[in-house]
């Protein structure tokens, strides 16, 4: 838990978290990136995976890494979302409210590799 007085993030760790907000759209593709105020302090928000799926809305799992030790606080404005116009039809098998409202670990182990 991030306490009122803040939590110091360590450079050699990976932190998973979630947004406070439920975010998504059936009409636009969501992309989630860091704010430049946090970037200037050396925080990566999302580890090159900033792209959302059209039609999904949920609290976003955040992947956080810092370059130097950095103190963060509860409820701070940490990132920003952008919405992009899609071109083309969509395969409508996506559930709008996905279940990923808790920090969601990688599911890569579920994929069989050849």
């Amino acid at each position: 838990m991030i306490k009122e007085r803040g939590l110091i993030l360590e450079p050699n760790k990976l932190y998973l978290g979630t947004t406070v907000e439920t975010i998504g759209s059936k009409k636009f593709v969501t992309s989630l990136i860091g704010r430049n105020t946090m970037a200037k302090l050396g925080m990566f928000l999302q580890i090159t995976a900033d792209l959302g799926q059209l039609g999904e809305a949920h609290k976003w799992t955040l992947e956080i890494k810092v370059v130097q030790r950095l103190r963060i606080y509860p409820n701070m404005e940490i990132g920003q979302v952008t919405f992009w116009q899609p071109k083309g039809s969509v395969n409508q098998n996506v559930e709008f409210y996905a279940t990923q409202n808790e920090p969601y670990p990688s599911q890569l182990y579920n994929e069989k590799t050849k």
Binding site: L14, I47, T48, A49, L51, S106
Partner: peptide
């Protein structure tokens, strides 16, 4: 080019800001 959420959550960058 972008990472997948499943690789990002393992802390794997697929590119260094040059996507």
């Amino acid at each position: 080019i972008k990472g997948r959420s499943s690789t990002g959550r393992l802390g794997i960058f697929v590119n260094i800001t040059a996507d």
